[in-house]
Simulated scan of single mutants.
Amino acid sequence: MKTKEANVDGFLTEQQENRGYFRYVAPCTFYGSPLPREGLGMQEKKKKPQFMMVFMCIPVAPGKSRVIWALPRNVGVWLDKVIPRWYYHMGPNALFDSDMYLLHVEVINGAQATETHCSEFLNSEHDPIVLPSFQERNFAAAGVENWHKAVYVPTSSDNMVIAFRNWFRKHCKSQVGWAVPTADQLPVTPTKDKLMERYWSHVAQCRSCSAALKAMKALEVALQFASVAVVGFLAVAKGTLVTSVVQRAAVVSLAVLCFGASRWLASFIQKNFYFHDYIHAYK
């Protein structure tokens, strides 16, 4: 991967053998495609398949950013009519939350490190859990101006990390220009359950996820009611409608199945719409 363009507007990197590209558009947009750039925008008799990833990470306050992402494509569009949006959202939500706490703690501990390291996290092909921890600790010790002396970036994909750091240093002086700068800009680290809270940060803002949550809660209550109703039916119909051992076993199994399904659904709702602990330690 090589950097083809680099200026105040961002930079462009292309993969070898014309196998795709990534572009950073200052100050907050990153997009790319596994397809060559030459095929984009060309009108041909046969429409070529196109796929792109667009990611925007917008700093809104010290320690907080608004994330907007999209995956535009012209193939498999019919899947969007079959698979609901909330199902697609579970994957990215898990990706963001899985490293949210660790990345936040590392930035707080390395207060001299850049507050927009999320772009670096996305652009690197290394392990997203281990590498940011290693980098931010070294950045804090070496200082953002000497970041290149504190890390090891041997792969060609690291060219995007280098290009972003150079752009951030040259055009932003290695800091975000907040409207009201303070001596200690980064907020106090909240607890994990508050930092990784998902309902107010996404579900309440997303019509598809909020509608799915309401439907699943209603289904959970219905399953619990069904399990109680089945047990009540067994008590009333014992000796009349339900006479054999096999029939009683089937009714009891149905009640247990309904109750178990309601408990599984409750766990699913909690993990995907409220909070999911990814076993990151508090310290």
Rank of each mutant, 00 (worst) to 15 (best):
R19K: 14
R137P: 01
R169F: 04
A229L: 10
S157L: 11
R165Y: 10
S65P: 01
A204F: 09
A6R: 07
R169Q: 11
K214G: 05
P128A: 06
V60P: 02
K48S: 12
F273D: 06
Q185V: 15
H171G: 01
F259Q: 10
L40E: 14
R207K: 13
A142M: 14
K64N: 02
N159Q: 13
P72N: 00
P36Y: 05
G20M: 03
N123E: 07
M160K: 15
V82R: 09
A183W: 05
S33V: 05
V105A: 08
F164I: 09
G260Y: 13
L12K: 04
Y21Q: 01
G260V: 12
A94G: 11
F11P: 00
F233S: 13
E115T: 05
W178M: 11
R137H: 10
V67I: 15
K81Q: 14
R165A: 09
Q50Y: 12
T240V: 12
M196D: 12
L79W: 14
A249G: 05
V188F: 05
K170I: 09
V67Y: 08
G260D: 08
N146V: 07
C206I: 06
V130S: 12
E38K: 09
L40P: 01
R73W: 03
S210E: 11
R85C: 03
C206M: 03
A94L: 00
E120V: 13
K217R: 09
V25H: 00
Q224P: 07
L102C: 10
K48F: 02
W264N: 11
R169I: 07
A215H: 14
L219M: 10
F134A: 04
P36L: 01
Q43G: 05
T3G: 00
H171A: 02
F225L: 13
S133Q: 13
M52E: 09
R73V: 06
G76M: 03
V144I: 14
S210D: 10
N18S: 02
V8P: 00
A281W: 04
G232D: 05
H126R: 12
Q112D: 13
M53D: 11
A255W: 00
Q205D: 12
R19T: 08
P181K: 10
G41I: 03
Q205N: 15
R73M: 06
P34F: 03
P92Q: 00
V161H: 15
H117G: 08
T189V: 12
Q185F: 15
V228E: 14
Y278L: 03
V75H: 07
M160A: 12
F275Q: 03
L12G: 02
W86Q: 08
G32Y: 03
F259W: 15
K194L: 03
Y282C: 15
L131E: 15
P132I: 04
E120L: 14
P72I: 02
G10V: 00
C118F: 10
L122T: 14
E14W: 08
V246F: 02
P72Y: 00
F30D: 00
V151Q: 08
